[in-house]
């Protein structure tokens, strides 16, 4: 029996593999980032009011993130299931929990980069003002919300990748689950932006919700990912 790789090493290797593929193929940078930017512009067309845009900017940033998450997850698993790489990883005896954490980490890195871009877009397009008081809140909110989104996305992405060709099911399964993240992250971001007279301190309870969410689905994913991707 060969020596078992630790969960951390598997996760690092899987995450590095996924990120390397993304860096080389540039699909995320060339297609998904512009898509998210386009969504931000479309929101402005739909709402057509500068004050409203500034007021709801936090929610729009997170909605654009959710839409992009669906594509990033589909992409992340399409790369793996196209040539049976996911199965190969399982046959190679890698701990599914390690694969789960690794793929979620790679998604997390992509999402955080995307969110930074979206926040800049909000500043430019929606006239949002960033306050130094809200900076810590904003950073904590981004990290905890992104962790939750990545865990849920990877979990349900694994399920739909296991059932080949049923990617259309992903949004139906995933969006209801991430609703608490949308609510929590939006409220926390609005507090950090101080939009509509919100106080920065109002945002912290929401960060608590986001952290609990990420912990619950991180643990849930580690325990169940193996069952979901098994053929």
């Amino acid at each position: 029996m060969s020596t078992q790789l630790s969960l951390g090493r598997i996760a690092r290797a899987v995450a590095a593999k996924d990120l390397r593929i993304e860096l080389r193929s540039r699909v995320v940078i060339n297609q998904i980032f512009p898509f998210a930017g386009l969504v931000m512009v479309m929101f402005a067309f739909a709402l057509d009011n500068d004050d409203v845009l500034t007021r709801v900017a936090g929610g729009l940033v997170w909605l654009a993130t959710l839409f992009s998450l669906i594509i990033i997850i589909q992409r992340s698993f399409a790369v793996d299931s196209a040539d049976g790489a996911l199965e190969a990883q399982r046959v190679a005896g890698l701990n599914p929990a390690g694969i789960f954490v690794g793929k979620a980490l790679a998604v997390m890195v992509q999402l955080v980069t995307l969110e930074i871009m979206l926040f800049f877009a909000a500043v430019v397009l929606y006239r949002v003002e960033l306050h130094s008081d809200g900076a810590v809140l904003l950073v904590t909110c981004v990290i905890s919300a992104t962790a939750g989104l990545s865990f849920v996305g990877t979990l349900y992405g694994g399920l739909t990748a296991g059932a080949r060709g049923r990617e259309t099911l992903l949004p139906l399964l995933m969006l209801p689950v991430v609703a608490p993240v949308l609510i929590g992250a939006t409220r926390a971001t609005e507090s950090a932006f101080m939009s509509g007279g919100a106080a920065v301190s109002d945002g912290w309870p929401w960060v608590g919700v986001l952290v609990v969410f990420a912990a619950v689905f991180g643990l849930g994913g580690i325990l169940s990912f193996g069952s979901l991707i098994e053929e």
Binding site: L159, G162, P176, I183, V209, V216, F217, S224, S227
Partner: peptide, 22 residues
Amino acid sequence: RSAVIALLAVLEIPLVHFSVLM
């Protein structure tokens, strides 16, 4: 598959309820 999804729903529902309650 469906057993795992059903149990994940049990995790999801209290979280949704609590966040909407807030």
